[in-house]
């Protein structure tokens, strides 16, 4: 699968841009948190698209962002 680029995103309507980012993020999140993957992806999609592209290129940053999202999600659900 070719990497998602800013120009590929820019060619799509806003709603579809999030969809494209979600499709890339979801499998990565699924590998870490299978039971929460859909919710975590939904949370991360609130982040700016430009930052999401950076996260997709940086597994370490993505990792810490996912952990951050899990903490927020768990706090929210209590």
């Amino acid at each position: 699968q070719e990497p998602l680029t800013a120009s590929m995103l820019a060619a799509a309507p806003p709603q579809e841009q999030k969809q494209m980012l979600g499709e890339r993020l979801y499998p990565l999140i699924l590998a870490m948190h299978p039971s929460l993957a859909g919710k975590i992806t939904g949370m991360l999609l609130e982040i700016d698209n430009s930052e999401l592209l950076l996260l997709l290129e940086s597994p370490e940053s993505l990792h810490s962002k996912i952990e951050e999202a899990v903490a927020v999600l768990q706090a929210h659900q209590i």
Partner: peptide, 22 residues
């Protein structure tokens, strides 16, 4: 409570129904 529905859940292969952008 509406807060229970946050965050919207992403499902692969389905159109995203959350916020298009902030």
């Amino acid at each position: 409570s509406s807060s229970v529905n946050w965050p919207p859940e992403f499902r692969p292969g389905e159109p995203w129904k959350g916020y298009p952008n902030i």
